[in-house]
Design a protein around this nucleic acid. Sequence first.
DNA 1: GACCAGGCACATC
DNA 2: GATGTGCATGGT
Length: 211
Amino acid sequence: MRIRLKRAYDALFRAFGPQHWWPGDTPFEVCIGAILTQNTNWTNVERAIVNLKGAGMLDAAPLRKARGDRLRRLIRPAGYFNQKAKRVKIFARWFGDYLGDSFENAKGIATPKLRGELLALNGVGPETADSMLLYAFGRAVFVVDAYTRRIVERHGFIEEGATYDEIQQLFTSNLPTRRKLFNEYHALIVMAGKHYCGPTPRCDGCPLRGK
DNA sequence: GACCAGGCACATC
DNA sequence: GATGTGCATGGT
């Protein structure tokens, strides 16, 4: 399995090249993007982020102060705007209360502890927490999303119906624990998912065939 | 018009 | 513990 996962990575990297993820200017923006992209197309999220940025609202303090109706209007294109407006506010509050509005203050906190804190927030589940940990906090955590599940199930890396934790362990226990590797691998999986491994498979030309 | 997109919380059994 | 449902926009 170790060698299969490495071969799959190499094939994806050859096919797509470096992805330079996460698409976001600041760690805080990455966290907000992680919430906004829940079950939603990224292009819709981008509109919401542009709106927030234009309103000077892509920071913890203004988000905490923002009126609900204003916030909902700004993030509307990302869908589920009622839920997501609450979740973004909750995250911004936690970011101030727990981290004093600075990612620097997370430096001394062990990754499992930090993950637990994130998971305790309403609106932050395993994928959102792990995306934040990897792409905003710089921790070596493997992100499992819908594409990851489809790909590892279809290509027989794991049995169908595996849990989030099991899929995550498939990667973390068979790859060196490197932040940059986890970062790139997840980004490449999303690319493969978009191009070849959607709900209806388009396996012709998929770099993972036979891997 | 159906289906899909980088989930999550909550109710119910 | 497993399963079902609501949440909502914009592209194909």
